[in-house]
Amino acid sequence: MKHCLVVDDSSVIRKVARRILEDMDFSISEAEDGQQALDACKESMPDAILLDWNMPVMDGLEFLNKLREEEGGDVPLVVFCTTENDVAHIAKAIRAGANEYIMKPFDRDIIEAKFQEVGLI
């Protein structure tokens, strides 16, 4: 079973994402900000990370930059999932090493399509 780390400061979003991803046969853990996510990754690298952008303590982009510098940090497939929906943000995320990008609001179809795109399913 593949493992996905869901990173979002909204507990509602985490719950929705968890439900969708569990139906897709992923095991899930959650983090509320970039720092928590980074700590979790240092402990064990997930297969996938669903990543919000705007969060307190450490935002998604900073987390991604730090993750990609970690040993083994190039392994997880990172899918941004954020309300930031302009070209500048998307391009920045891709340059930082994001594999895919979801513009909120999202639904089951979009998560499935994007996870398929990066080869997770």
Binding site: I94, E100, F106, E117
Partner: peptide, 15 residues
């Protein structure tokens, strides 16, 4: 729509 460009279209292609 934002919804339509997210079903099947890789983000690189969108850009």
């Amino acid at each position: 729509s934002q919804f339509e460009v997210q079903r099947g279209l890789p983000i690189q292609m969108l850009l």
